[in-house]
């Protein structure tokens, strides 16, 4: 059975003027860690709000944990854990009070499902008497996750839990998700960070309300149709412009330390071609190698095709 089913969902705002979600379909299998990957405005939050029954879609069908988002909205609310993108706990209640409040609302107690949150809650326990509003970003995130888990939901819906969070907290958070997955909870998580895509089992790449691709990160990368080259020289920004202006180059983007380059036609000696272009433009310390593409390369390519 699928834990989440989304079928031809469309959502518009402002009397149809703004198309936020454009005929989207995907399925999340039971126990899967599934990622919605896309920038702001891709439609990620609208999808979460439709699945949590907080928003009605214009068209299409969706179900969560086997319950229909319209007919069985009450059952969905009892069976999902939701962490919205914006911190939504009670700022004036303490850590312990927030947790106990959410447990009570869901008709359970902290003790009943303590084993599920123990690892996470232990990290914020020393601050259990601190008001939630006074917590740091990383601790707020952990408390929000505890509150979303306290009723032992079948499906966990996490809307951009790592946005604006530093590298260290992001790593910790994904470790927690892996642990939760092992306990059988289905997780649907969204993120604008392309590097986090590799931590999901399957992902949907979203842009402007449309799904560009749904697959495992490995398969999406495998489907990248070009040979990709990494390039750098002493003047990397000049190299970027020089390569872009060359007729043989299909695309050239900055990727951290290197440029990622593709050629228009498949070439046996692509490395040499690029080196010649760089040399002709007076570059020194030229480094060019064939490299493996990543999710971000695929995303850029697909979003170009989408127009």
């Amino acid at each position: 059975m699928n834990a989440v089913t989304v079928k031809n969902i469309t959502k518009t705002y402002d009397k149809g003027k703004v198309l936020a979600v454009d005929n989207i379909s995907f399925e999340v299998k039971e126990g899967e860690l599934f990622g919605l990957i896309g920038p702001d405005g891709a439609g990620k939050t609208s999808i979460f709000r439709i699945l949590t029954t907080l928003l009605l879609a214009d068209k299409g069908e969706a179900s969560v944990a086997g319950f229909d988002v319209i007919k069985d909205y009450q059952s969905i609310r009892n069976n999902v854990g939701y962490m919205p993108g914006k911190f939504s706990l009670y700022q004036d209640l303490t850590v312990a009070e927030n947790l106990s409040f959410f447990a009570t609302v869901f008709g359970t107690t902290i003790e009943a499902n303590y084993d599920l949150i123990k690892d996470i809650y232990d990290q914020i326990k020393p601050f259990s008497n601190r008001r939630a509003g006074k917590l740091s970003g990383g601790m707020k995130q952990k408390l929000a996750l505890c509150c979303a888990l306290i009723h032992k939901p079948l499906v966990l819906l996490l809307d951009e839990p790592t946005t604006g969070v530093d590298v260290v907290s992001r790593k910790e958070f994904w470790e927690m998700l892996k642990t939760l997955k092992k306990q059988g909870i289905t997780i649907l998580v969204s993120t604008p960070y392309m590097d986090e895509a590799n931590l999901c089992e399957r992902i949907a790449l979203l842009q402007k309300g449309k799904i560009m691709s749904v697959d495992t990160p490995e398969n999406i990368i495998k489907a990248f149709p070009y040979t990709l080259y990494g390039a750098k020289s002493d003047q990397i920004y000049k190299l970027l412009n020089d390569l872009r202006l060359n007729g043989q180059v299909e695309s050239c983007y900055a990727f951290g330390e290197f440029l990622h380059v593709t050629l228009k036609e498949k070439q046996e000696n692509g490395k040499k071609i690029l080196r010649v272009i760089a040399e002709q433009n007076g570059h020194s310390n030229i480094w060019i190698e064939e490299i493996k593409p990543g999710i971000e390369d695929s995303f850029i390519l697909l979003s170009g095709e989408q127009g």
Partner: peptide, 20 residues
């Protein structure tokens, strides 16, 4: 201050072109 948060990969790079 975090000028490219949440921005898509292509726009993020175009933004850095402007910075350069």
């Amino acid at each position: 201050d975090e000028p490219t948060g949440g921005v898509d990969p292509v726009t993020r790079r175009q933004f850095w072109d402007m910075i350069y």
